[in-house]
Design a binder for these strands. Structure first.
Lengths: 139, 139
DNA sequence: CTGGCTGCAAAGACTTTGCAAGGCT
DNA sequence: AGCCTTGCAAAGTCTTTGCAGCCAG
C-alpha cells in the first residue's frame, strides 16, 4: 500500500523523503483513522525519526494536495486528517471517549432532491458528523 | 426580543452590562446569522462601544452557556456563533461568496433508524453542513 | 456592598513562513 | 546539477487567562 501511495506523490512531482514516508506510515499503521497533526508528529517522533513539526504540517498539506489524505474540522475545533483510501463515509464520534467509527450511511442523495425543489442552491460537498455514545460508553 | 434574551441571562445569574448587550445586539441586528468572534467585535467596536476583544470572547461563552447562542465549526476551521432563536436547521454554505442560508431539511430521523439496526452507537447530536454554490454564484 | 465583569497585557495553542543548508532524482 | 525539502526560529492567528479596578444588582 505504501508503494501505491508513494506513486501518487511522484505523479504530482513530489519527492519521497524519509520524513514524508514517516508521516504516511502514521496513517497506515496507527489504529485511529482520524489523526491530528500532533498525533502524527508524536508517531513520527516516537519512531526516532527526527522530524520538525513544521515539516509535519507541510507534509500534511502536500498529502492533502496529492489526494492521499483529507482534512476535516471536528466540533472541538481541531483539524483531523485521514487516509482517503476508503469510500465515502461519515463519522460517529463518541462524546465520552472520543473514539470515531465510520458509517457508510449518507443522506446526500435525499438532500439533493429536497434542495432541488425548494432552493436554487447547488450542492457540491457536505460534511456530516454524528455525536453520541459508542457501544462501550453508553449504559 | 432583546428583553427576552436578557431575561435568560438573569435567570442564569449573569448581569446585564453594556458590553454584553452590545454583543447580543450584533446577533440581533446584523444580517448574517453566522458570526465569527471577529465580526462581533467589529460590530460592537463600530458602535463606538469601547470594548475589549477578550470581553467579546468571554461573553460569547456566557451567551452560549445561557443557551442564547451556539457555536459551530465550519470546514475552514473558524468558529461561528448564531442565535438559537430559530428551530433546528442546517446551513447551505456558498464556496464562492461564503454566504450561508438555512435549510430546515434534516436527515437525522432517518439516520437514527439506520444506525439503530446496524450499530450500537447512540446518537445524541449531529452536525451537517452543505457546501456548494448559491443562486447568485452558480452559473 | 459584593460578586460578577471589564480592560489590559501576557501567555497559550496551533499553524504558517523566510531562509539557508541539505537531499532526492 | 537543480529543484524540492527540511530544520530552525520567528511570526501570525485565534483564543484564553491572571489580575486589579469597576459596576450592576
Amino acid at each position: 500500500m505504501e508503494a501505491k501511495l508513494e506513486e501518487l506523490l511522484k505523479v504530482k512531482g513530489y519527492k519521497i523523503t524519509s520524513q514524508r514516508r514517516a508521516v504516511l506510515e502514521a496513517f497506515i499503521y496507527l489504529d485511529k483513522h482520524l489523526l491530528t497533526a500532533a498525533e502524527v508528529y508524536e508517531y513520527v517522533s516516537a519512531k526516532s525519526n527526527k522530524i520538525n513539526s513544521s515539516t509535519v504540517y507541510r507534509n500534511l498539506e502536500i498529502l492533502t494536495d496529492a489526494g492521499i489524505i483529507s482534512r476535516s474540522n471536528l466540533d472541538n475545533g481541531v483539524n483531523y486528517y485521514e487516509l482517503n483510501l476508503e469510500g465515502h463515509h461519515h463519522h460517529l464520534i463518541c462524546i465520552s471517549c472520543g473514539a470515531a467509527e465510520k458509517t457508510s450511511f449518507c443522506p446526500m442523495e435525499k438532500i439533493k432532491l429536497s434542495l432541488e425543489e425548494s432552493t436554487d442552491f447547488q450542492p457540491i460537498d457536505h460534511k456530516l458528523e454524528i455525536y453520541g455514545y459508542c457501544g462501550r460508553c453508553k449504559k
